[in-house]
Amino acid sequence: MDKSCKLISFNCKSVTRCVDYVRKLCQRADILALQETWLLPHDLQYLNKIDEDFGCTGTSAVDTSAGILRGRPYGGVALLWRKNAFGSVTVLHCASVRLAAIRVITGDTSFLVFSVYMPVDCGENLPEFTECLAEINALLRALMSECFYFRGL
Rank of each mutant, 00 (worst) to 15 (best):
M1I: 07
K3P: 03
S4H: 13
K6M: 01
L7I: 14
L7S: 02
L7Y: 03
I8P: 06
S9V: 07
C12H: 12
K13D: 02
S14R: 10
V15W: 13
V15M: 14
T16K: 15
R17C: 07
R17W: 06
R17H: 13
C18E: 09
D20N: 15
Y21T: 09
V22P: 13
L25E: 14
C26K: 14
R28P: 03
T37H: 15
L40M: 15
L40Q: 14
H42G: 10
D43W: 14
D43E: 15
Q45Y: 15
I50H: 13
D51E: 11
D53R: 15
F54M: 13
F54Y: 15
G55M: 14
C56M: 09
C56E: 05
C56Q: 07
G58V: 03
S60V: 09
A61T: 11
I68F: 06
R70S: 09
G71V: 08
G71R: 06
P73I: 05
G75A: 11
G75V: 05
A78M: 03
L79K: 06
L80Q: 02
L80H: 07
R82P: 00
R82K: 15
K83I: 11
N84V: 00
N84Y: 02
F86L: 03
F86D: 00
F86R: 04
F86W: 10
G87K: 04
S88P: 00
T90Q: 12
L92N: 01
H93W: 01
C94T: 04
V97A: 08
V97C: 03
R98P: 01
R98E: 00
R98K: 03
R98Q: 03
I102T: 00
G107C: 00
G107W: 04
D108Y: 10
L112H: 04
F114C: 01
F114Q: 04
S115P: 07
V116R: 03
V116S: 11
C122S: 01
C122K: 03
G123R: 10
E124Q: 07
L126P: 00
E128Q: 11
E128F: 08
F129P: 01
T130V: 09
T130F: 12
E131A: 08
E131G: 03
E131Y: 02
E135Y: 11
N137A: 09
L139D: 12
L139P: 08
A142F: 08
S145Y: 02
E146A: 14
F148N: 14
F150Y: 07
R151H: 10
G152W: 09
